[in-house]
């Protein structure tokens, strides 16, 4: 269950229209390393992780990513809502415009629609957390590339905020991973017995030998 809070995690107030930049930033809405993929990844993986620390971390970071999705949608909308036809044509926004108008659609910067193939939920808590740490790094890189393309401080401030959150989330997933490693190492876990075929004697224990 979720409760919606009628405010942003970090304010977004952009004066200057810039549809070209809007199209690039949209990739953090519905692109391969975007916030929607992040949120679905963590909120799906939480069902099959093992330690209380990892469950809480996946649940809460997955939730925070939804707040980031909302910030990105706000940035894209505010950058494009006042664009006139001339700006739409001259700034390469026309290809997006014919499919979606000024609507906010989950797609990458190059126009590929969002797909669940961007994420994995492997049912292995170690594997999942490694993916999550990599995902945070990929999102951080994306924010840096976006910052390289941005001169407007109204846009850069929320992007810097979002980039820093990736660093913090990486740390928390790293700590969650430590708790999972310790848990799986502990004596509470089943030890898989050595299979019979590894024994040196000729009777391997299978039905045939008996």
């Amino acid at each position: 269950m979720w409760v919606y809070e009628k405010k942003l995690e970090f304010p977004v107030k952009i004066k200057k229209t810039n549809p070209a930049l809007a199209k690039c930033i949209l990739t953090q809405y519905g692109g391969p390393d975007g916030e929607l993929a992040a949120s679905l990844r963590y909120l799906s993986q939480r069902f099959t992780t093992v330690t209380p620390e990892a469950k809480a971390t996946l649940n809460d970071i997955g939730t925070e990513e939804l707040a980031h999705l909302e910030m990105i949608g706000s940035i894209v909308m505010q950058l494009s809502e006042d664009a006139d036809m001339q700006e739409i044509k001259n700034q390469g926004f026309d290809s997006y415009y014919v499919d979606h108008g000024l609507g906010i659609y989950p797609a990458s910067a190059s126009g590929v629609p969002f797909t669940a193939a961007y994420l994995q939920s492997k049912g292995d808590p170690i594997t999942d957390l490694y993916e999550d740490m990599a995902a945070e790094q990929k999102a951080r890189s994306t924010y840096e590339y976006l910052l390289n393309l941005t001169d407007d401080p109204d846009v850069a401030e929320p992007l810097k905020f979002l980039r820093e959150r990736e660093i913090v989330h990486f740390q928390r997933f790293g700590e969650a991973l430590r708790t999972v490693q310790d848990y799986l190492d502990s004596e509470r876990c089943f030890v898989i017995p050595k299979p019979n075929f590894m024994n040196n004697d000729k009777n391997c224990g299978c039905k045939k030998c008996k």
Binding site: K7, L8, P11, I14, E70, M77, Q78, E157
Partner: peptide, 12 residues
Amino acid sequence: PWPWSRKFNYYI
């Protein structure tokens, strides 16, 4: 205003 609008927001 709703949170995604300019009007809702403010400078820190």
